[in-house]
Computed example of a mutant assay.
Amino acid sequence: MLNRRSFVWMAALGALAGCGSKFRTYNGPEVTRIVIYKGERKMHLVNGTTALKSYKIALGGNPIGDKQYEGDQRTPEGAYLIDRRNPNSSYHLSLGISYPNEQDVAQANAIGKSAGGDIFIHGRARKHRRRGKDWTAGCIAVKDREMEEVYSMVRVGTPIYILP
């Protein structure tokens, strides 16, 4: 039988174990779309016409203009969907963006290049925490704690609009 001291000790250990998880729960309004303003370095999680949360973001190392081809260090612009979730990301957690679409592929092919892929919203991960404002290869990055929140709120199929 557990005495009171043992019970309190076990409860405290259980509570501490839960603090270390990167997976959060969210029970608020549905995120109906994500809107990113590259020029402002802002990402908004939106329900209807209400911004539920807003975050400062980092972009690709060459942040001005639309992504043209793989390796150009630009973040794409346009309408996409969140198409996958990666709980084992090298960047803490990540949400995949449905880039490239048919237009992106055609545009890259027209200049003899590949459109690339693997564009995500992700965290910073330890090795990227001290990097400058725009450091990704074309992705959208937030702080790890913020990514935990975003990951809990956003579902596969959510539209994302990336604007200049």
Rank of each mutant, 00 (worst) to 15 (best):
S21H: 03
S21R: 10
F23P: 07
R24Y: 15
R24M: 15
R24P: 08
T25H: 15
T25Y: 15
Y26Q: 06
E30L: 14
E30W: 06
E30A: 10
T32K: 04
T32A: 08
R33E: 12
R33C: 07
I34N: 04
I36N: 01
I36T: 01
Y37E: 01
Y37G: 02
K38L: 10
G39S: 10
G39P: 03
E40H: 13
E40Q: 15
M43C: 02
V46C: 06
A51N: 13
L52E: 02
Y55Q: 05
K56W: 12
A58V: 02
A58F: 00
N62L: 06
P63H: 01
I64F: 09
D66F: 08
K67Q: 00
K67Y: 04
Q68S: 13
Q68L: 15
Q68K: 15
E70P: 06
R74Y: 03
A79L: 15
I82G: 02
D83Q: 11
D83V: 14
P87T: 08
P87W: 07
P87F: 12
S89H: 11
S89T: 12
S89F: 13
S89C: 15
S90V: 10
H92F: 12
S94K: 00
S94C: 14
L95I: 08
P100V: 06
Q103K: 03
D104E: 06
N109G: 00
A110R: 15
K113R: 14
K113H: 07
K113S: 06
S114R: 04
S114D: 12
A115P: 04
G117W: 07
G117L: 03
